[in-house]
Simulated scan of single mutants.
Amino acid sequence: MKAFGAPWLVFALLSAAFAALTAIFAKVGVANVNSDFATLIRTVIIVAVLTAILAATGEFQPLGSIAPRTYLFLTLSGLATGASWICYFRALKLGDAARVAPIDKLSTVLVAIFGVAFLGERLSAPNWFGVILIGCGALLVAYKG
């Protein structure tokens, strides 16, 4: 149970809370605008906020100090993030936030599978049971019955 006291947990919980707010705010925000344009506005705001944080903390790094492999994977991550946001905002435009968000959170299940398959991570039987529960729970929440 040491994992429940880990320092990363605070940030993970904050991430979950902000992700929930993202869904609610975005659902209202895309009501009267094209979902792709809404994604652009959101992205510009994120870039501005991150630029301000880096400037305030002095954490900018020289671009030449970053390895090509890092650029490759950050580029791939950025493309995947952009595709995810475009799809997410389109889904929010078309569906209920309470149904879209749980399906989006099936990414948790996929991360577990990809982490094992591609990163050599290991999950115990209780971990896999949790992954299955997350998947089933997301589908049940999204089910319109």
Rank of each mutant, 00 (worst) to 15 (best):
L13T: 12
C136D: 01
A112M: 13
L54F: 13
V111S: 11
C136V: 15
F118D: 02
V100H: 05
E59C: 07
V10Q: 07
L9M: 14
A6K: 03
N34R: 14
S77T: 09
A55E: 03
A56L: 11
Y88L: 14
N34Y: 06
V109K: 07
A52Q: 00
V109A: 09
G82H: 06
L14P: 13
V44A: 09
L40W: 12
G5P: 00
A31H: 10
A112N: 06
A26L: 05
I24A: 12
V47T: 12
G29F: 08
S65P: 01
I113Q: 05
W128A: 00
F18G: 04
V109R: 00
K144Y: 11
F118G: 01
Q61T: 13
G120L: 08
K105I: 05
A23R: 05
P102N: 12
L110H: 05
L74V: 10
L72Q: 08
T75L: 15
R122A: 05
A3W: 14
L92K: 06
L40V: 13
N34K: 10
A26D: 09
V116H: 04
V100D: 10
T43K: 03
S15G: 14
P7C: 00
T22Y: 10
K144R: 15
L21F: 15
L119R: 02
A20E: 04
T108F: 11
C87S: 15
L72H: 02
A55T: 08
G95S: 14
V100L: 12
E59L: 09
G95P: 07
E121C: 01
L133T: 07
L74Y: 09
L123T: 07
I41C: 06
V131S: 04
A31V: 08
L50Q: 05
A56D: 02
P68K: 10
F18E: 02
A38G: 05
V44T: 05
F4I: 15
A12P: 00
L94V: 12
I86K: 06
T39W: 02
R90K: 14
S35G: 08
A138N: 15
I103K: 03
F37V: 14
G64W: 07
V116F: 10
A83H: 01
A3H: 13
G5S: 12
F4D: 02
T108L: 15
F18S: 11
I113F: 13
K105W: 10
A125T: 13
S65H: 07
A55W: 08
T57D: 02
L106N: 08
R42W: 03
A97L: 10
V100P: 06
F37L: 13
L9P: 00
F89G: 03
S107M: 14
K144A: 13
A20D: 06
S35W: 10
F129N: 02
L50H: 02
T51R: 00
A142Q: 11
I24M: 08
R42D: 01
A80V: 14
V30D: 08
